[in-house]
Design a protein around this nucleic acid. Structure first.
Lengths: 204, 204
DNA sequence: ATAAAATCTGAACACTTGTCCAGAAAAAAT
DNA sequence: ATTTTTTCTGGACAAGTGTTCAGATTTTAT
């Protein structure tokens, strides 16, 4: 066995190790998210998360620097997933007309399915107004969302300059009907579809 | 002195007393707001507020039921003032063309002048997604804001049905540029004016 | 089988939180 | 001037917070 082989073997081991650690981090983050989306950022303690994960408090600190590190990791993880989900809708080969419809339906479905997770996003986004520790992750995610809208618009033949304003408009309707849905208004997602369709038709 | 006179006198006293109490409540609330807008809902303790008011913690409980009561009182108080301010702009006798301009300028000025207070509003609005105790005050204020937009639209000759969607759009731009402004982007309010003007011109 | 390294535990720490309340201080009524 | 009522104080309380860390446990390497 040459020296290079040895080094390669060691590198492999190290990688496998950090991959395992990453998997465990994600596993913990997933449990943390289930806790966070129920209680919100301020009301969720590390003990809540530890209990939810079936793990001792110390373990959380073994994997995450501190509470902020844990929470930003969680938010990033979930929102990346959301952007990917919505992105896959746009990748499917569909006619431009159907595209907008699918996009909107995807969003309204997400209100129904992931209402609690989305409210966590709005919680963190608001926290960022007070705590600079959240500024970066919020800006990153908001960029991702804007890009998502940009690809949607470019596929619909609209100038990409409209990405930011369109994102903002979509977001405000999304947030409003999410709020209504959380308050018990089961018809909110359908209403969301109607109102946003009307708005996009005027734009596209 | 007749018996009726006596009763009237007593009623007067009672009224003066409760008026005095109301004034003191408002005084405390104003101090509380200065604390809340710096730290946000979750991070502001009753001790912070007490210190800011130059008063002992017990005094706060003498005037307010509990923390939620105090905070909702504060939010209501400040937002009512904001709606009144904006409403007075609409009451002035101006041409419809100037109206939109004035309205937008008023909003952008408020970003500059009351940035911290507005972020408190967004904080509470998000809290309402988790804590039903805030649902009522948030719904009330949001109704007030929608009505504000409605009167603006009716003066501009736009169907009042557009009030809700227009409010949502204005809100999203307001929130976004407020966030940018708080992050240090001094040009955000001006940008807000430009973007919203473009949007309203298309609508009006 | 043994040693070493990584993983995990949960008690302990120092601190903060909202709330309560006996009693002091001030104001109002008599 | 005296009593009654209102207003206010600030210490005490129980519960909860994030963080630390010595040591137990498990996994990995030799």
């Amino acid at each position: 066995m040459t020296k290079l082989d040895k080094i390669a073997r060691l590198a492999e081991k190290a990688e496998a190790k950090s991959a395992k650690r990453a998997r465990k981090k994600d596993e913990l983050a997933d449990h943390a998210i289930t806790a966070l989306k129920q209680l919100g950022y301020a009301r969720t303690s590390l003990r809540d998360i530890a209990e939810m994960s079936g793990v001792a408090v110390g373990t959380l600190h073994y994997y995450f620097e501190d509470k902020v590190d844990l929470i930003t990791y969680c938010v990033r993880r979930y929102k990346v997933g959301f952007v990917a989900d919505m992105g896959s809708i746009l990748k499917a080969d569909v006619e431009p007309e159907q595209l907008a419809d699918r996009f909107i339906k995807g969003l309204s479905l997400s209100i129904r399915r992931e209402a609690e997770t989305h409210r966590l996003w709005y919680d963190i986004r608001t926290q960022a107004m007070f705590d600079p520790a959240f500024e970066e992750v919020v800006a990153d995610i908001e960029d991702g969302l804007r890009d998502l809208v940009a690809t949607f618009l470019s596929r619909s033949g609209v100038s990409p300059e409209q990405a930011r304003p369109t994102y903002l408009v979509l977001d405000s309707f999304f947030r409003f009907h999410l709020q209504a849905y959380l308050r018990g208004d089961k018809g909110a997602p359908a209403q969301f579809e109607i109102e946003v369709s009307a708005l996009l038709n005027r734009l596209v």
